[in-house]
Design a protein around this nucleic acid. Sequence first.
DNA 1: CTGTTAGCGCTTTCAT
DNA 2: ATGAAAGCGCTAACAG
Lengths: 333, 333
Amino acid sequence: MRATISDVARAAGVSIKTVSRVLNKERYVGAATRERVEAAMTALNFSPSLAARTLAGSRSFQIALIYDNHSPFYIHQIQEGVWARCRQEGVRMLAQPVDVASPTLAREVGGLIDETRVDGIVLSSPVTDAAPVLAELERRGIPFVRISPGTNHALTSSVFMDDAQAADDMTTHLVNLGHRRIGFVIGHPNHMASDQRLFGYRRALDRAGIAYEPELVRPGLFDFASGAAAAEALLALPAPPTAIFASNDDMAAGVLAVAHDRGIPVPARLSVAGFDDTELARAVWPPLTTIRQPTRDLAYTAASLLFEKSDGVEHRRLQHDLMTRGSTARPAG
Amino acid sequence: MRATISDVARAAGVSIKTVSRVLNKERYVGAATRERVEAAMTALNFSPSLAARTLAGSRSFQIALIYDNHSPFYIHQIQEGVWARCRQEGVRMLAQPVDVASPTLAREVGGLIDETRVDGIVLSSPVTDAAPVLAELERRGIPFVRISPGTNHALTSSVFMDDAQAADDMTTHLVNLGHRRIGFVIGHPNHMASDQRLFGYRRALDRAGIAYEPELVRPGLFDFASGAAAAEALLALPAPPTAIFASNDDMAAGVLAVAHDRGIPVPARLSVAGFDDTELARAVWPPLTTIRQPTRDLAYTAASLLFEKSDGVEHRRLQHDLMTRGSTARPAG
DNA sequence: CTGTTAGCGCTTTCAT
DNA sequence: ATGAAAGCGCTAACAG
């Protein structure tokens, strides 16, 4: 039923090896021959068997994207970016959600590689910082690129933005609006970016000469519910903050919901800031001020690094932006 | 480096065929032999080559999920559901975003099948209703299941909810709140569900004895911007609606944003309802009333249908729920 | 520039 | 209940 390389060879009157050469865009094929083969491929509607190519050759024309992230917006952008680059390359993308907390994660990833023989791997946070996985990949010598790793930028190829600087920028922005008591909701402990964002927040306060107050800092899990819980706690303080900066948009949305429940007008009485600038940030009301993390571009660039297969370790830092959407009012207090 | 079936056979002192039998859980393998083989597989950390199995056998242990949907929340849930079922089955999921509008779509899907030899396909709306794709799949006789198809439920295996009834329920809910002028924002024209939701809206009005007014119905594209545009138009009417029912959550969020811009309190002066009950609906404020579409379950069930490979066409209808979140106030007008 | 010969690691078919 | 042999459709390493 489906055409094979032999069918094409027969139709074009050449050997299968020549067809293979055309398929792989190798040199040393006569122009006339090439055209004849290409015509035959089109006529027979030929699609090469990936399984056969993988088995016989040294490439599988597939890469894997491994992630464990519960923000649908974030994942969507990551997938989009990687997929866009794969498409250009004629390579398939295997999307692999995993559980970073799983004790067998490294084995699972190893199994994936053995089974599929993927040509490379893109790691998304927080899998980027799962030591057993990194060790497994190094051991096998398979190319991989990390998106927004939290640790050891220098050791492996990776793409990232400066989370600390971005959080610093946002905090400084709030300080410039006149805020002195700025609440902070930390991100998921699994994500190293969480630490860096907290660090940036502290650095900005420090530079502004504002004392760090532990009671203004609350843990979160990068989801709506934990953002809401943190806001409840912060707004119940004897001296509540006049601004709350959450480590991502989902949590910032949670903060907004609580503010509403308590009848606190935003941004008149409370400024709320987020991080990532996902679609969510654009949809919620009142508008959030956010850090635009160029997620899709990071993912696209990561895939590029994989395909460019430079000999060594390579890094790319992308720029962030501070997006203000209407909530620039100075606080009442 | 990586172990092959021959390595395992040698280690266990059996032929490769016996290892193959154990791998495929075939009968007629002695208990003692089986154990010995399994021990060898574990010891050698053996993972069978998918490429080899695909090339030699009649299965590829892979299915494809094909979609073209721009709501990240929706896609996320679909992927989750399908993936969960695949995992149980030990089958890989190839996520394939496509462009339904592409004139070469059927060819692309055909190419995907030829290249990967996937064992089955899950189609998500609106690819569910791309006739050329359906024709191509039928022609090849490859098993496929459609999630929420808009047309011809009966012709192929599919899972769905009753969109018309759900929209009818929501409209009736609004009528029961006292609304007589209910705006409606239609979904993306590519999605057949859009028609059905509109139909349900009209049916409910009809039953309530409320005349259908074309000026209260606006087109949309399932995204935030089009929802906002529709709201602008509706609220600018000489006699604006007291409630607006958008065909999905993203558009409903757009409606909320416009209401805010115009200083119209929600829900005191305007009730806003959405559809799908994505995370977005839970995050926006003021709370949306939504129809909960059991997206993840639909996807999970779709994959199940594929694996159960019943001989014929099968359907599953899942239930929706009407979720009210605080906005049950009666309209002022 | 083009063809020939071996496999890749499994499943299938047929023996035993 | 187990094994031997023959490919699946392609690429790799050589010939020419």
